[in-house]
Structure formats: C-alpha cells, structure tokens
Amino acid sequence: MRIPMAVYLTRARAGVALAGLLVALAGCSVPGPGEAPDGIHDPQEATNRRIHAFNKSLTGGAGQGGGVIAAIPQPVKAGVTNFADTASLPQTVANQILQGRLLRASRNTLRFTVNATLGLAGLFDVASPLGLPEDESDFGETLYVWGLPEGAYMELPVLGPSTERDAVGRFVDLFTDPLYYLLPSPDRYYGTGARVAAKVIKLDDYGDQIDALMNDSADSYAQLRLIWLQNRRFELGDDRAGGEDYIDPEALDTEGF
C-alpha cells in the first residue's frame, strides 16, 4: 500500500517532534532524597530568581494601571473569556484522548458543540448550566498522566512559573492545536488572540491578590514558587511530588505561644 505524501510528511514531522520531546524529557531532573524540602526541587534557583525579577518588573503596574481593563463592561469580558475557552476546547479534547480520559473528552466535545452553536460561536457559555462545566487540560497534564517526572521548578520569562515537564508541555501545545490546522488563515488567529486577551482579563480580575503576593510578601519568588507548585499538583491530582503528606496537629511544642 502506498502512503500518500502528505500523510508521510505529517508522520515524519511527528516522529521528529517526538524524538525532540524525549530528548527534552530525558533532561527532567529528579531530586534525590532530601533534595526537595517542602516538595520544592529548584536547582536553578539563581537563574529563576533573575527571571522572576524581570517578570516582576513587567507586572509591576498591572494592578494599578489596570484601570483600562477594569473599565471594560463585564459582559464583554465574559464574552472574550468564553470565546477563548471554546477555542481551546479542541486541544483539551485531544489531550484528554491522549490521557485515556474518554468520558471527559466526550463531555468536552459536547461542550464545544453546544457553545459553538447555541452559544453563538462561543461567546456565551450555555453548556455550564447544562451540567457541562469548564474542564481544561494541556499537554503538561498528558505528560503527567503518562508518568513522566515533574522535573525541576522553573520560572519562564513573561509566562511565569512552570516545571520542566510543564515547559515541554507548553512548547508542544504551541504546535498541536487542532483548530489551527482546520481553520483558514485569518480565523485561526482569533482563538489565540482571545486566549491572550482572556489571560490579561484574568490577571486584572486577580490584580489585588497578585499585587499582595508580589509586593507585600517578604520573598515573592519563594511565595509564588510554593503556591504555584501546590496548586498545579492539586489540579493534576499529583501526590507523588508533594512535600509533607500529613501535618500532625499534636507533634509540635506549642508551649509559650
């Protein structure tokens, strides 16, 4: 049987990408015993701190200068956020299939269909009240499900906190959005644009909390690292990389406090 050229090329490209991925993941560093106090493995801390200082200088005015975004009417913001979510669903479905979570993948397929049609091309989230709530996924999660180690903590320029595993996931996600390959040229960028806009809106919504974390804490790098890692592991349901499993309410001398 002759394999059509286009299919062959796609396969070849996938093969190269997979090889590159495996090389990247082989570099995922796994902490030895006692090398990850409180569940934090951060061998590149000095570099990460420099990137954090840079990121902090970018978000410095986010809370205060966010007046423009705060002035946008709530329904418009909701529309952008809903559209971004709908546009990201095909990729979520692809990842959930790769994770073997077929029920969630089919639920999200239905959510996509409902919101893309009844929700007027994704501007309204009519699926959530129908019992199909938001359920996002990404390739970082797929790699977790496949059993790859989390790797070291890292802070990426502009993008913020990540791990070695999640950074590889983000990179792969850049090239594997099904919508990008299905839609013609200008349309395929709307989803990406909406996703960036939705991020900005979300950052503004949480402006006070982000300001408090970035400016009020004694060491914003350490706080962000701890909070982000714990929350990401919670999202993934990852208890392998956790710090202390159980905090004993009686194993502490509270005399004098």
Binding site: D38, A218, L226, I227, Q230
Partner: peptide, 21 residues
Amino acid sequence: YNMYIEGVNMLLTERTEIGAM
C-alpha cells in the same frame, strides 16, 4: 489548625513567609 485553598497549604505558605521575613 490548617486549611488548603485549592491545594495551597496555609501552614506551609505562612512558614515560608515568616522564614523569608
């Protein structure tokens, strides 16, 4: 004696903060 908000452990967060201070 502790609470977790979406997986974020208050005791650990506050110990990190006091340690940094």
